[in-house]
């Protein structure tokens, strides 16, 4: 997909910088420019496309749609809507209250809450850029399945009494949803692209710079030995390590990118990305306002196990690019 860019950057390295592609420096410089431009193009397109779709699914509308479903089909819908409904972790509490108040079953609410942070445009963009369409699709499908299964299990456990009592007493007001026209939707999507790129460009450059340095110099064998797909504990450790970190998936791109380039198993890096977004400690603290510790613990354990399984699956499916 990006052969043209690859060749263009080779021209840049050899003709403008006067470096040979066979030298370590030349190869690092090439990787840096190639990767930066590729990721910015992919991110820009993905964020724009998904934001545009999201402008059709404000949470108020998602809530209304979900009240019409139940059972497995409901979990599936909730998980899918989790992808297209815009929502940041600081909104998880009002969103949770809104769902409960609308009478949406707890299992469906959790399907939404699990898939929503995991499947996003950023994760998709980096996977698409690094491993192609097939792997990116498998990631999305596993994120949805994780949400469906997690939600089904939490629903079966009948933990409604583990929600703080006051939540059931709250009355949610009716608010009108803004009607947007085509131009406003495009603006909304463009604003999102600008906003996200502004927030992450520096980290992205540092991450890619690091990756580029590693690309040319560091022996990939070293990290591959400790965190490569052959180490059975790598996925587990990276999942646990990610919990106290707070970052959205966008912030983990450069880390994952650098790790994968170092020879870390892709499943290991994906588990890390998923756990950082889905199991963040600050979000748990926020959710504690509406649900009791027992349900939070159940949520963490179920989601954690799911993430570890996905990690192993990926390490099994894909051998490292080394």
């Amino acid at each position: 997909m990006f052969i043209w860019l690859d060749q263009l950057m080779q021209l840049l390295v050899t003709n403008v910088f006067g470096l040979s592609m066979d030298t370590r420096l030349g190869s690092s410089v090439h990787f840096f420019f190639y990767d930066t431009i590729k990721i910015i193009i992919l991110l820009g397109i993905m964020i724009f496309a998904i934001s545009y779709i999201r402008s059709y699914f404000p949470p108020e509308r998602t809530k209304k749609i979900l009240t019409r479903f139940n059972g497995l089909k409901g979990n599936f819908m909730a998980s899918l809507l989790g992808i297209v409904t815009p929502f940041c972790s600081c909104s998880s509490v009002p969103l949770f209250i809104g769902f409960v108040e609308a009478g949406i079953p707890l299992g469906l609410t959790f399907s939404f809450l699990i898939t929503s942070p995991i499947v996003n445009e950023a994760a998709f963009a980096i996977l698409l850029g690094t491993f192609g369409f097939k792997i990116a699709t498998i990631y999305v499908v596993s994120g949805v399945l994780l949400g469906v299964l997690g939600g089904v299990i939490i629903g079966k456990l009948k933990m409604e009494k583990e929600v703080e009592e006051y939540v059931y007493q709250l009355k949610m007001g009716e608010s009108e949803v803004e009607q947007l026209n085509h131009k406003e939707r495009v603006n909304f999507a463009l604003e999102n692209v600008k906003d996200i790129v502004k927030r992450i460009w520096l980290f992205l450059l540092i991450g890619i710079g690091l990756g580029a340095a590693i690309h040319g110099y560091a022996p990939a064998a070293l990290l591959a030995k400790y965190a490569g797909p052959d180490n059975p504990f790598a996925v587990l450790v990276s999942t646990v390590l990610a919990i106290p970190l707070y970052s959205n998936a966008l912030g983990t791109i450069p880390i994952a990118e650098a790790l994968i380039n170092k020879g870390v198993g892709i499943g290991t890096a994906l588990s890390f990305m998923m756990a950082t977004t889905a199991l963040s400690a600050p979000e748990m603290i926020l959710l504690r306002k509406v649900i009791k510790p027992k349900l939070i613990a159940t949520f963490v354990v179920i989601t954690g196990i799911g993430i570890v399984i996905v990690g192993y699956l990926f390490n099994f499916l894909i051998n490292p690019i080394a």
């Binding site: 949470p59 909104s91 509490v93 009002p94 969103l95 809104g98 009355k171 007001g173 306002k289």
Partner: peptide, 13 residues
């Protein structure tokens, strides 16, 4: 205050 916020029907802050 979260209960006050949801009274306005607002789900995302």
């Amino acid at each position: 205050d979260i209960p006050a916020i949801v009274q306005y029907g607002v789900m995302t802050t």
